[in-house]
Every structure is written in structure tokens, then in C-alpha cells.
């Protein structure tokens, strides 16, 4: 990841467009990825990414340099995403849709139809959609974005033990779901 210097952050805070663009180029893939995994909707993820950066630029003056810019931007991303989730009623539908897909893909009949890559993304989204937004956030930050526990704690503003217990609970849910699917197949 490109280096983000305090000087660049100060320039972006003063509305220096090239610095703002640099910040966008470095962090927008991660912001978009997290938003997309959380929302499972490309358009919604685009909306969130845009509003995240507008918010980032407007709040950059308040950014304290003792915090990490990475976790700070991700915190805004999570907040914006959770707000978006509250507004949309799609969440429930997605889970229903996944349960069906996931049961089917275990039979491996649909693999030929889907592109391998697309299929893998669907599996990931299916797993994530089984989780509540809190657990999903932790799983995305850890298993997709490879955040450390401390980074997740800073981003979600909870302590490390909470992060640990959320990850444990999320993974237990995923294991239990897999067991259920396998039992249904037998």
C-alpha cells in the first residue's frame, strides 16, 4: 500500500485535489470491498464508497494523527455501511437467497454454469450473509481485509476481547450452518 504521509493528509484536509485523489486511490478498493461484502450490492457499495470519501475529506481536519488513517477510514466505512443496511430491507432477502444457493452448490451441479471465480464470491457472500452485521463486520475485517485484532477493535470501537468473542461466535455460526446443510443432504 502506498505511503500516506501526514503532509499528504494535511494537504487533503485543505482541499488539495491531487492529495484527495491519492488518498482515494489508496483506500477506495478496501472501502469498496468492505462495503460490497457487507451490503452484497454493487450499487449500494458504490454509494457508500462515495459518501465515505466525501465524509473523510470533510472530517479530515479533525483527524488526530495518533490514530491510524486506515482504521479511521474503515470506521467511517463501517458506520456508513451499517446506516445503509438499516435503510435497506434487502438483508433478509439476501439470506433467503443464499440459503438456497448454498444448498444447491454443495451438490456441485451448478459449478459448470458459474464461472469459478463468480462461484467463489457467491460462497463468501453466502457465508457472510448468515451473520448479523456486527459479526459480519468482524469476519470481513479479519478474513478478507486481514486486519489484526487491535485494528478491528480500533475500527469498530470495542475492546479486543469483544472482537475475539465476536469472531468466535461468527465462526461457530458458520460451522453450525455447514453441519445443518450436510445433515439435510444425507
Amino acid at each position: 500500500m502506498d505511503e500516506i504521509t501526514p503532509e499528504l493528509i494535511r494537504q487533503a484536509a485543505n482541499g488539495h485535489i491531487p492529495s484527495c485523489e491519492h488518498l482515494f486511490r489508496v483506500y477506495s478498493p478496501a472501502v469498496f470491498s468492505v462495503a460490497y461484502r457487507m451490503l452484497n450490492q454493487r450499487e449500494d457499495a458504490e454509494d457508500v464508497t462515495q459518501s465515505v470519501f466525501v465524509k473523510v475529506y470533510s472530517k479530515l481536519r479533525d483527524f488526530r494523527f495518533e490514530a491510524s488513517i486506515k482504521t479511521w477510514i474503515h470506521r467511517i466505512t463501517i458506520n456508513e455501511t451499517l446506516n445503509k443496511l438499516k435503510k435497506t430491507t434487502r438483508e433478509r432477502e439476501n439470506i433467503d437467497c443464499f440459503s438456497k444457493t448454498h444448498s444447491e452448490d454443495s451438490s456441485k451441479n451448478n459449478v459448470d454454469i458459474c464461472v469459478e471465480r463468480e462461484y467463489r464470491q457467491q460462497v463468501i457472500q453466502g457465508l457472510l450473509n448468515l451473520l448479523s452485521p456486527e459479526y459480519r463486520t468482524c469476519m470481513i475485517l479479519r478474513n478478507v481485509e486481514k486486519f489484526s485484532y487491535q485494528e478491528i477493535a480500533d475500527t469498530t470501537q470495542v475492546n479486543i476481547n469483544t472482537v475475539k468473542s465476536r469472531l468466535k461466535r461468527a465462526r461457530e455460526i458458520l460451522l453450525a450452518h455447514k453441519t445443518e446443510v450436510m445433515n439435510n443432504e444425507l
Binding site: 477506495s28 478498493p29 470491498s33 460490497y36 457499495a45 464508497t49 462515495q50 466525501v54 463468501i124
Partner: peptide, 21 residues
């Protein structure tokens, strides 16, 4: 999750952000 490709934002997204900026 090892197969989690980085999903890339659309190319023109920066232009939108820049416009609102």
C-alpha cells in the same frame, strides 16, 4: 475466504467523488 478477490470500485467513481468535493 482465501478466494476473496479484491472487488474493485468502478473507474468513474473518483470523478463522482471529485465532483461532490
Amino acid at each position: 475466504f482465501l478466494g476473496a478477490d479484491s472487488v474493485t470500485p468502478p473507474r468513474d467513481l473518483w470523478q463522482n467523488v471529485k465532483a461532490s468535493l
